[in-house]
Write a protein that binds this DNA or RNA. Structure first.
Lengths: 219, 219
DNA sequence: GTGCAGCTTATTGTATACAAATAGCCCAGG
DNA sequence: CCTGGGCTATTTGTATACAATAAGCTGCAC
């Protein structure tokens, strides 16, 4: 999209994901405009998009605040994501093209490489993991489903989950991807959907463990 | 929300739903601004919202067009809606308040009245039907789910479905609502979810029948 | 006749000024 | 000390002008 509006979107989103703008913080269009070195117009545009991403909520008097997530909200998001990604896998199973299947294998090989060293390469893991799931979403061939799912992925909580993955979780994720590939190779919708549902569900518990551990440590 | 922006949103949305702006038609911000008697700023705002509602799609050069829906798109939308509304019913079953349950009964009584006369009162049916489903969505207590579902309901295709309902379908819809109320009264998540999934699925076939009949008649 | 270059025009993006609304505060009155 | 009314300052909404970009067309070369 347009330069200034995109720039504002990226900057503000980055500030929220990095925690620079903490949950509950009020966002002033003017302040953000100064920070992004653009006028309020593209900032307003960016805020609208972020609101639709559920990264921002607006008070009834239209003031914007960084969304804060209760434990229930987080469980809720994972639950929905699990349901929708399973549906994406179900659809993709019978529609996936050979080239896409090969691309899945490629990205999972890179994931395998990223987590095999002494120190796991988390950015590489995240990148290839995202690409892996995007290919499935594309293969599902449903723009509505894609539109709904992009509102649930890459949210602060989800984004930080992998940061806290331990080696065992990373390797399990890698193996589950292998199973998904097998299900796609067999074009088995039910198999693909159930693996995917479990895959996301496990990610939730991995997040939960890391998060409660963090919280316990902070006390 | 604000007056001008809301007004533009309502007017443009109305024109799309009424078919005044046919699928595929290009939307010029300036033309719409004139039509709505506001400036381009609130029109831009409205277009963004309509895009997020999937009523409008934008070309890669940011021009706006009324979304057009293939048969597959429509099936897809109903499939997702069925899944998400079932999830809403599942959650609502154990969370619904007595007052909400009573409100469901109230609206379904009104639905019963609307379809009992010689000539069914379709607007009243639609109104109370919408209210009925909104109460369930509210009782589900998931803002994410609500945000996703509002993107699927009240789209042109869905909106026109009930216009084509025959008496049998209207009465069946009324009876399914009764069953939903029973499931909520028992606080049975699985029951509520399965009734709801079937309820939406049936609406899809009702639409399909009416639509194919229309198409056959046009030939 | 076809294809491409360059111009013309339509359309969207951005900045800015001003209007409207609202939230927070201060002070008066009880 | 608490409460409420009204003022002020902050924030968002709208209009408008101008800039940038993309689409479509015209005419020229081959």
């Amino acid at each position: 999209m347009s330069r200034a509006s995109d720039h504002a979107y990226t900057v503000i989103r980055g500030m929220i994901l990095a925690g620079e703008l903490p949950p509950g913080a009020q966002l002033s269009e003017e302040a953000l405009a100064l920070r992004c070195e653009v006028s309020r117009t593209p900032v307003r545009d960016a805020l609208r998009r972020l609101e639709s991403d559920l990264l921002i909520r607006r008070s009834e008097s239209q003031r914007s605040f960084v969304a804060d997530w209760s434990d229930d909200d987080i469980e809720d998001a994972f639950e929905l994501r699990s349901m929708l990604e399973a549906q994406a896998a179900r659809r993709a199973a019978t529609r996936i093209a050979p080239a896409q299947l090969e691309a899945l294998r490629h990205h999972n090989r890179l994931i395998g490489a990223a987590i095999s060293g002494d120190r796991a390469d988390i950015p590489a893991f995240l990148d290839n993991n995202r690409a892996f799931h995007e290919i499935i979403l594309a293969a599902a061939g449903s723009s509505r489903l894609a539109s709904l799912l992009t509102r649930l992925i890459e949210q602060p909580v989800v984004w930080r989950t992998a940061q806290n993955y331990d080696r065992e979780n990373l390797q399990r994720s890698h193996r589950e991807h292998e199973e998904l590939i097998a299900a796609f190779a067999r074009q088995d919708p039910a198999w693909a959907a159930s693996i995917m549902a479990g895959h996301i569900r496990r990610a939730y518990y991995a997040y939960l463990d890391a998060y409660t551990a963090q919280r316990t440590a902070a006390e």
